[in-house]
Design a protein around this nucleic acid. Sequence first.
DNA 1: AATGAATGAGGTTTCATTCAT
DNA 2: TATGAATGAAACCTCATTCAT
Lengths: 197, 197, 197, 197
Amino acid sequence: MSEQDVRKHLLECAKQEFLAHGFQGASLRRICAGAGVTTGAVYFFFQNKEDMFAQIVANTAAELTNLGQALSMAELEEPDSGPDCDLRLMEFLYRHRDEALLLLERSQGTRYAGFAEELYAQMRWAFTLFFQRYGAGEPDPELIRILVEMRMKGNLELLKGDYTMEQVLELTRLTGVYADGGFRRLTAELRKSNSEG
Amino acid sequence: MSEQDVRKHLLECAKQEFLAHGFQGASLRRICAGAGVTTGAVYFFFQNKEDMFAQIVANTAAELTNLGQALSMAELEEPDSGPDCDLRLMEFLYRHRDEALLLLERSQGTRYAGFAEELYAQMRWAFTLFFQRYGAGEPDPELIRILVEMRMKGNLELLKGDYTMEQVLELTRLTGVYADGGFRRLTAELRKSNSEG
Amino acid sequence: MSEQDVRKHLLECAKQEFLAHGFQGASLRRICAGAGVTTGAVYFFFQNKEDMFAQIVANTAAELTNLGQALSMAELEEPDSGPDCDLRLMEFLYRHRDEALLLLERSQGTRYAGFAEELYAQMRWAFTLFFQRYGAGEPDPELIRILVEMRMKGNLELLKGDYTMEQVLELTRLTGVYADGGFRRLTAELRKSNSEG
Amino acid sequence: MSEQDVRKHLLECAKQEFLAHGFQGASLRRICAGAGVTTGAVYFFFQNKEDMFAQIVANTAAELTNLGQALSMAELEEPDSGPDCDLRLMEFLYRHRDEALLLLERSQGTRYAGFAEELYAQMRWAFTLFFQRYGAGEPDPELIRILVEMRMKGNLELLKGDYTMEQVLELTRLTGVYADGGFRRLTAELRKSNSEG
DNA sequence: AATGAATGAGGTTTCATTCAT
DNA sequence: TATGAATGAAACCTCATTCAT
């Protein structure tokens, strides 16, 4: 094999292993066996197991953080952009499927363990502001938490399926419609409760 | 301590360990250290690590399967019972919080690894029938899948919070309202698409 | 093998390995091979490699610390007891030869790495007081340091030889005579320097 | 950097690593990282790790051997030259501090492991002759061994301190006074013992 | 003259499991 | 009923060394 092939092969095998077993459950031996090298070889390219994980997800993590902030801002300034934001997020996630799933669901034991929580916190913050403007007074933080969690879980499930991007975007549009309808009904209900309670 | 006391203590410690680290990440040594017992003792009460897990969740698994079927049937026969079914499910999950979380999120590596999928399959089936009756024609199975996943993810997040049952049931009611609103908007949208497409 | 034999055998083999290669250079595999067990067995008896080292030297370390303090005090209160103190120290060291050598010369990498320095610091302190009383004014700390180091180095060399205790004590007596003569000449010299300088 | 520059940089880094961790504890990787060179480069300049060590200390070792012989001879032919010899030895050691410490205390695992012993053997031989002439009959070889060991240990401790050469030479003069006084007292004592025993 | 890549053996430690007692 | 002891495999990682280029 020539040049950087081994390194790339190693990263690819590691990615699959991390996806299949999570960071902690992943075995360097299996990764190396898959890449056809001895375990020592890993340590020429990477500092350690976690560094391998980091090198796989680092770029995606940085971009995702930026995108999250950008979308939060966009949504606050232009409330109607919500559906568009959802699509842009999903498009990004789709283009970085494996890395996104690693970051958000398989990173326990790495320095990225808290990444999902950070991202979700940001989303909760944006959603809370949105709720305050268009919703029904001060929203229950726990309700916010659950709605955000549901939303992102749905997105991640979409990633796991074997879809084309068109399918993903269409399904995203539909879950957006669902979320919109849910939000309206919910705020109506809460307004009613408040006026009654 | 009597025989049963040790066994129960062991099961309790194992439950916490499995919750904290998942089945595969759990360490029998830590479990035994926590229970004040040597590792060998485990093999008097249990066949192996997986058997321990199984003995913790078996009852809950069986009951949950039954409850799932019962609720599916109830919902089909009496469509308006949906919200009530949600509450009954959540009440059950709340009463068996730890076991439910083990079953649905910490069972990788055990024979229960596919339990969540089975349960969700059943829910998808029920939801599909519901969709066919009150929705917009033949629903996209992937849309169904995602909606079910979102719903259950929300429920599980509720379980992880530190709530009283009253709080859980109220939040469940609200997510039910949200889901209902979402469903209505979505079917409206789909009907429009169908008539146009 | 019965009872605690393996543990003791393991400790003995470890002691020899630590003496031969120092803590860091010692190999658990060699230790275990010597004791006829697999490496895993170590971790039933000990927490880790360092714990093994610690279990070998802990008692001796504690006693040696106490003895050092006791002798320092004795020497301060009764200056003529110096030679007797030396003998008592050497008798102790001889009775705990291996452990003393491990503590004072092979402990790098363990929590006892600084033990020798602590002991020597105490000796320097005692020697400094002695110097102030019977010597020539305020002694150069570096001179003190070197004299103490020389003294203890001589003692440790005695330990490494293959002597009977009688031989050790006689040689200790002689090095005590040597040290006494050296001290007298040195203080005379320093007094001369001071009066001149 | 020119070829020789790299080689020298490598040797300098290796020296510090060997001083810090001893030969066996030293890591070629750290050395190379420090020198900004890959591990393979070492094997262009040196045969292996031990050859590196050897190239660092070889000159000093040869000179030290010669100096040791020369001083032994000088001291035998001119007994009063002892103090002067001590100073000349220390001056040499001071000028080759690092290499001397490597040779005498950090060479375990190399072909120089026995160097200190050889040097000390020579010193014991010279000291024995000196003892026979000016001492008290046939000296106990073990006593000789310990006195030599103490003396050299003192010298090495001086090297480790952060002194100027003036300070080192002054401290050497003082330890020489100490040794002289000790020697006189000791021979007096031994003569007394012999006439009594 | 030196790199970049890789090996294979060895390092310490943790694991679930076994079994005589 | 449970311990105490031990296994053997596997975990991650570091090592000095090699070699084609």
